[in-house]
Design a protein around this nucleic acid. Sequence first.
DNA 1: AAAATACTGAACCAATCGGTTCAGTATTCT
DNA 2: AGAATACTGAACCGATTGGTTCAGTATTTT
Lengths: 112, 112
Amino acid sequence: MASNLDHVLVAISDPTRRAIIGRLASGPARISDVAAPFDMSLTGVCKHIKVLERAGLVRRTRHGRENTLELSAEPLRDVAQWALKYERFWNARLDRLEDYFIKKRRNENEAD
Amino acid sequence: MASNLDHVLVAISDPTRRAIIGRLASGPARISDVAAPFDMSLTGVCKHIKVLERAGLVRRTRHGRENTLELSAEPLRDVAQWALKYERFWNARLDRLEDYFIKKRRNENEAD
DNA sequence: AAAATACTGAACCAATCGGTTCAGTATTCT
DNA sequence: AGAATACTGAACCGATTGGTTCAGTATTTT
């Protein structure tokens, strides 16, 4: 049984699929539009999309003959979380990320 | 040219290699010791270690006939960073990550 | 010196991966 | 109705992956 983290990590290990994620981050798009920039057949891109769907990284909605794809980035939170388990091995950087949240909270409180 | 993020994401996409990372998080170990828990030949584990080395996730030091492996988790910071680029897509959860840091500041331990 | 230990490289293998083409199915446009 | 559009499934292909075994090289132990 492959866990979802498995599927997600496999999905993001391919540069084409990461590019698709990047594309969808700027808004939903049809399969053909997502495929257009790639020097690859539509079928090839479709296969990548299926891998992304299996990982729960992309949602699809059919509208007639068109398929609108939408990013569903939640699984990437698990990726970040997994990597952050090892934060203590790069502590200097973590402090910076921690600072970010501390500052963010401070700013939010000031805004109140 | 495959970037290092490429190598790192490929490296962590395999469960055996993630298990090796997990093992090394609790301290350096010899190849044989790392290999022991796996139902796999030593050669098989060696190949996984080579993939981890290529990604810069494992450092090796020879001591006579023994190879001590040490986790070098810095590249995982890049993974976290990459995933966090999409944080705005799971904003509700970002608060939970924020909680994580708050809890961490209160407690202060945990690993693996 | 001989035996055991700790790996390593090479050759091999089956399965998966990333890609293709081609043919087909809906759906929409003219 | 006919043509164009937007995909999809199946079959295929070569390269890569994850594993194996076997033989070999250092190194350490006895």
